[in-house]
């Protein structure tokens, strides 16, 4: 049981990170139906910027909390600038181009950002400085670290704040209006370009926070770290219902759990030695090793894609989504 609880904790932490990144995808997609492929790279740039600041200040006598805050405060504006730049330079000129054009551009930007980051921060895996002691608590036999608790709590707070922005402020109303129908929104006096730019900026700010989370959780940063993370977060957004903020959170947590439990249990579930009837070949291997696993944790990266494909095929609007699928 403690193992199961531990896997839940693992999954929730991972899911919290996916959720925050997924918010960036879902907001942009909700408004202009664009898969911002380069969003994962923004997360990476956030992690790298924070790492540079934190490593620079570490050991300077400044209190650790201040250092981390400085890291976040540096990463957020940098990422916001990158997000805004992306929108201005790459996406806005294509606002009325065929649908595939901005997607191809997004892939291109993703490659460009990765390699620019590589030139800035080198090819090496960079160690994220550990300036805080990371206390480990044991709950029912399962370990949870201070960083994990921070990540989960912070992500919930951020989601709450974002929901408040979208549903309680004028900006949020404008965002929803633009998402609903940009033409009409414009007629109502909403500056759609500004709203879209702001959406990118908010998403990028969240990406920066996610970058710091990922970096400090795993203690490592690399210029390629954003791509797969972005893909998985996108899967999470689709799972929850793309365009839907609560959906992104739900999708993120669910995907995190699926990955953790999948990696943890798929091996046991596909262990051919549990079969009631075994062919000789299998029986011989089982007798020798005690296990003959058909699919092990080596397939853990497949789960996100399977979830994505399954959702898109059977429930394209996602778990909490409205039917936006047919539009455009």
């Amino acid at each position: 049981m403690d193992i199961f609880l531990q896997q839940i904790i693992n999954g929730l932490t991972l899911g919290a990170v996916y959720a925050i990144v997924a918010l960036g995808y879902t907001m942009v997609y909700g408004i202009i139906q664009l898969i911002n492929f380069a969003h994962g790279e923004v997360v990476m740039i956030g992690a790298m910027t924070a790492l540079t600041v934190i490593a620079g200040l570490a050991g300077s006598g400044v209190p650790p909390l201040v250092i981390v805050l400085a890291g976040v405060l540096a990463a957020v504006p940098v990422c916001m600038a990158v997000g805004y730049g992306l929108e201005r330079v790459a996406y806005r000129p294509l606002r009325h181009a065929p649908r595939l054009s901005p997607l191809i551009t997004a892939i291109g930007m993703s490659i460009v950002l990765q390699h620019v980051a590589m030139m800035v921060w080198s090819r090496n895996f960079l160690a994220f400085p550990q300036i805080f002691p990371n206390p480990v608590f044991f709950v029912g036999g399962a370990a949870i670290t201070g960083v994990q608790i921070t990540i989960i709590v912070l992500s919930l707070l951020i989601m709450g704040a974002l929901t408040a922005v979208v549903f309680r402020t004028r900006l949020g109303t404008a965002m929803r209006a633009t998402a609903e129908n940009p033409e009409v929104a414009r007629l109502m006096g909403i500056d759609c370009d500004r709203v879209i730019a702001l959406t990118f900026i908010i998403g990028a700010g969240l990406a920066a926070v996610a970058g710091v989370m990922v970096g400090s959780y795993y203690g490592i940063a690399h210029y390629t770290m954003g791509f797969v993370l972005g893909l998985k977060a996108f899967s999470a957004a689709v799972l929850g219902g793309i365009g839907n903020i609560a959906g992104a959170m739900l999708g993120g947590f669910l995907l995190g759990l699926v990955e953790a439990l999948g990696a943890g249990y798929i091996g046991d579930l596909t262990n051919l030695c549990h079969l009631p009837w075994q062919p000789d070949l299998v029986a011989a291997r089982c007798a020798a090793d005690g296990h003959l696993v058909l699919f092990g944790s080596n397939y853990q990266d497949v789960f996100a894609f399977l979830v994505l494909i399954g959702v898109l095929m059977f429930r394209p609007e996602g778990l909490l989504g409205e039917r936006v699928g047919q539009r455009a």
Binding site: L34, I35, R99, L100, L231, V302, L308, I309, L312, G325
Partner: peptide
């Protein structure tokens, strides 16, 4: 199974299949 998907979803799903 993927052809009924719209353009950008199709792109992501094929990417997923390629990786799988």
């Amino acid at each position: 199974p993927t052809l009924k998907l719209r353009g950008d979803y199709l792109a992501i799903v094929t990417l997923g299949f390629g990786e799988i």
